[in-house]
């Protein structure tokens, strides 16, 4: 089937198998490798992207429903003024170890802060349900707090 959608502000028209998971379209058809495959069953969060403002596990999101949607992947976070404040906070707090899960965490965090600039602990725990086998959770928390602080105290230009 034919679908049309935008990723990171660019428009795409593709002829796809409507059942194919969005993850493989992103990674293999569009060659954006920042979105990772971990489980293919919406269980780990490594493949998280933002679709129309919602953090979404792209491994379990069929191509057919992508039609008309606007998608942001990790590659779409940077702008002219540099890294997204969430990415910058991740660097400042030296979060990644192996790094494989981090795109997913960063995307889930960006979506969370777009919805709730000052999330409660419960909102954080409910939104960041991804898994990190290296155990970077304490630093993810610190980085998230730093991002919250920077994004709520500074003018919005960097976002």
């Amino acid at each position: 089937m034919k679908i049309e959608f935008t990723i990171n502000g660019r428009n795409y028209k593709l002829d796809v198998n409507g059942d194919e998971p969005l993850l493989w379209l992103i990674r293999d058809t569009l060659k954006l490798k920042g979105t990772k495959f971990g489980c293919g069953k919406a269980a780990c969060g490594a493949c998280t992207v933002i679709i129309d403002g919602q953090a979404t596990r792209s491994c379990s999101y069929a191509a057919r429903i992508v039609n008309g949607k606007s998608i942001t992947t990790i590659e779409g976070l940077e702008n002219e003024s540099g890294l997204h404040p969430v990415q910058q906070a991740w660097i400042n707090q030296i979060v990644p170890q192996c790094g494989y899960c981090q795109s997913g965490f960063i995307m889930a965090s960006v979506a969370l802060l777009e919805r709730f600039p000052n999330p409660t602990e419960q909102q954080i725990n409910d939104s960041l349900t991804n898994f990190c086998r290296c155990g970077t959770y304490p630093r993810i928390r610190k980085a998230l707090n730093e991002a919250i602080e920077n994004m709520t105290s500074k003018p919005k230009s960097a976002v």
Binding site: K33, E78, P96
Partner: peptide, 21 residues
Amino acid sequence: IPRLDLEDKVTGKPIFSIDEE
């Protein structure tokens, strides 16, 4: 000293074997 691979890992650079094409 901050890890050398930080930026690659927060920007989703294709550094893993699964990313090779």
